[in-house]
Design a protein around this nucleic acid. Structure first.
Length: 204
DNA sequence: GCATTAATGATAA
DNA sequence: TTATCATTAATGC
């Protein structure tokens, strides 16, 4: 089946609503928890993580976004502050549109509005799946859940060897597990032919 | 060399 | 069984 899921919005169209490009260095924050959303963001190149820190200072990553993906947009329609930080993982260029302009864009371009709806629905759906998986006590289930999620979320790549572009630490921060547990569980998965490891890279 | 990432073992909860 | 801590190996700049 052919769900378009999360199509990026045409950059020229964004430009006509006074979008601007912005580049960030590694570790730079695009926005922080508690700030008020005032832009639509779309990644042109690079990658961004959405995270929090719990009371003990341990990081929890909610998601890692890549090329062509947007973030922060669900907040543009409601009057709330960001519940997460957005931090750049590697040098990143993104395009951003001021909130008011973006609302106008949506009003004047119904097809974009529909796509955005589809996109948000898609994210909501998989977030539910993720919640279920992460609620599991079993680390294997959490990791498999994450991998399935990444596979579906990213541009529907080849069926058999999907390359996980995350470090084991990042997988740990996404699943709430410890790095050592990730490493050991991944090795078990390799034995059971659930994943392949090539040059330390994980293929699922 | 230094920093980051991966791997492994011992021990405690 | 997983988390925690310590140690070491491997990579990349």
């Amino acid at each position: 089946m052919k769900t378009i899921s999360c199509m990026k919005i045409d950059e020229q169209l964004l430009k006509s609503y006074s979008a601007e490009n912005k580049t960030y260095k590694e570790r730079e924050a695009i926005f922080r928890e508690g700030e008020s959303p005032s832009f639509y963001f779309q990644i042109i190149e690079g990658s961004v993580k959405l995270n929090n820190y719990n009371d003990e200072g341990k990081e929890f990553i909610h998601n890692i976004l890549g090329k062509g993906q947007s973030f922060g947009d669900p907040l543009l329609f409601i009057d709330k502050q960001y519940p997460v930080n957005a931090v750049v993982l590697k040098p990143t260029t993104l395009i951003r549109v001021p909130r008011k302009n973006f609302i106008n864009l949506i009003k004047e371009n119904p097809h974009i509005s529909l796509e955005l709806n589809a996109c948000l629905s898609h994210r909501l759906y998989y977030q539910t799946i993720m919640m279920q998986n992460m609620a599991s006590q079993n680390p294997l289930a959490r990791i498999k859940g994450l991998f399935n999620y990444l596979k579906s979320y990213s541009d529907c790549e080849d069926t058999h060897s999907f390359n996980i572009k995350l470090t084991r630490q990042q997988i740990a921060d996404l699943t709430g597990l410890r790095v050592e547990t990730i490493i050991r569980t991944i090795k078990k998965m390799e034995k059971d032919n659930l994943v392949k490891i090539k040059d330390r890279k994980i293929c699922y």
